[in-house]
Simulated assay, not measured.
Amino acid sequence: MFRRTDRRNQDHGTGPAAEALRLVKVTKTYGGAENAVTALDGVTLALPRGTFTAVMGPSGSGKSTLLQCAAGLDRPDSGIVLVDGAEMTGGTEAELTKFRRNRIGFIFQQYNLLDTLTVAQNTILPLKLARRRVNRARVEEILTAVGLGDRLGHRPDQLSGGQRQRVAIARALITEPSVIFADEPTGALDTRSARDILRLLQETVRVHGRTVVMVTHDPVAASYADSVMFLADGRLAGEMHRPTVDAVAEALAHLGDDVMAGV
């Protein structure tokens, strides 16, 4: 069952509804009693609407698990996840699927496009799955905005890696989600394509008003975000606003030091 928090202050940009994402004491453990690994250890955070946040940390820090639990791809063992003021934790698998389709967009490193579908067909797939009406003019508008207005009939094998990721961004935007989760979205791209995709993610926030949460290991990618959250051993280890490449790299090198608390 999905419970909604008080939204009376939404129009004034204050109160719970001003938050796109909130996690409260979220914990996730994998494995049995003797071999248990705590991937998330009571993580609590809140992200305002219309922001671009990068999540960073060493391998095994819990950043991918954080994304999966926050996006509803995996269930936490305990804790609460709220998206746009509505609680996602709890409920049946069918309810969780409906919740994701209505409120969440995804961008993956390997694009996750269907080779047999055109650019336009891949873009509208979430609408088809949710049995929602397709506005063809809106589809063309979004694909034009991501630079693919002349590629609507092309298939993925006719596109470059950067163009495929642009389709993935358009697909994430088409349902007008509250939050878009991006998992290493530039990991498979060359430097120029990666830079273009990161700028598109910025536009997704600044022009379309979406909230983007991006998991990345790359300080350059993180520098495009408004802020960076650092994870270590399944816990939040610090936060940085207005990140720069050098500052992020330095923070990662000292992750876990006491100084991280004041980054």
Results as ranks from 00 to 15, higher is better:
Lys25Gln: 15
Thr123His: 03
Gly42Leu: 00
Gly72Cys: 03
Ala137Met: 08
Glu176Arg: 14
Ser227Gln: 15
Val220Glu: 02
Met240Val: 00
Met1Ile: 12
Leu173Asp: 00
Asn102Met: 12
Ser178Thr: 14
Val179Arg: 03
Thr186Ser: 07
Thr97Tyr: 10
Gly149Asp: 07
Ser61Val: 03
Glu176Tyr: 11
Tyr111Asn: 05
Leu82Lys: 09
Gly15Glu: 02
Ser64Ala: 04
Gly187Leu: 06
Gln68Cys: 08
Gln165Cys: 00
Ala237Ser: 10
Arg164His: 08
Val213Ser: 08
Thr53Met: 10
His254Asn: 14
Leu148Asp: 01
Val139Trp: 02
Leu159Trp: 05
Gln202Glu: 12
Ala20Phe: 07
Leu231Phe: 14
Thr44Met: 10
Thr123Glu: 00
Ala33Met: 13
Asn35Val: 08
Gly13Asp: 14
Gln10Asn: 11
Ala172Thr: 07
Val167Arg: 06
Gly62Phe: 00
Arg100His: 02
Glu203Thr: 06
Leu252Arg: 08
Val212Asp: 10
Leu236His: 07
Glu176Met: 12
Arg235Cys: 02
Gly31Met: 04
Gly187Cys: 07
Thr144Asn: 11
Ala170Lys: 04
Ala20Pro: 01
Gly234Pro: 08
Gly15Tyr: 00
Asp6Arg: 06
Arg133Gly: 03
Gln163Ile: 08
Asp157Asn: 15
Leu252Asp: 00
Val83Gly: 04
Gly149Asn: 06
Gly32Gln: 11
Val24Asp: 13
Ala137Asp: 12
Arg7Asn: 13
Arg132Val: 07
Gly105Thr: 13
Lys28Val: 11
Glu250Ser: 14
Ala33Phe: 11
Thr92Ser: 15
Thr53Leu: 03
Ala94Thr: 11
Ile80Phe: 06
Thr175Ala: 13
Leu143Met: 08
Val213Ile: 14
Val179Tyr: 03
Ala249Glu: 13
Glu87Asp: 08
Val119Met: 04
Gly161Cys: 11
Glu140Arg: 12
Asp74Lys: 04
Leu21Glu: 12
Ala182Asn: 02
Asp257Met: 05
Ser78Phe: 00
Ala225Val: 05
Pro156His: 04
Val134Gly: 03
Tyr111Gln: 03
Pro185Tyr: 05
Pro177His: 07
Met56His: 12
Glu203Gly: 09
Leu67Trp: 11
Ile142Cys: 02
Cys69Thr: 14
Ala172Met: 04
Arg103Asp: 09
Gly256Gln: 09
Lys128Ile: 09
Ala222Thr: 01
Gln158Lys: 09
Asn122Ser: 07
Ala253Met: 15
Ala145Glu: 12
Leu198Lys: 02
Met229Arg: 09
Asp11Ile: 13
Ser78Val: 02
Asp84Gln: 07
Leu201Thr: 09
Arg164Glu: 02
Ala249Asp: 14
Val179Pro: 01
Thr92Pro: 07
Ala130Arg: 10
Ile104Tyr: 01
Val167Cys: 08
Ser59Gly: 07
Arg199Val: 03
Thr51Asn: 13
Ala70His: 10
Gly62Ser: 03
Val37Asn: 14
Arg131Tyr: 12
Arg235Ser: 06
Arg49Trp: 14
Glu19Val: 08
Thr97Ser: 13
Phe99Pro: 04
Gly147Ile: 04
Val146Ala: 06
Arg235Val: 00
Asp183Met: 02
Ala18Asn: 08
Pro126Leu: 05
Val248Ile: 06
Met214Thr: 15
Arg22Lys: 13
Arg242Trp: 09
Gly32Trp: 11
His241Trp: 12
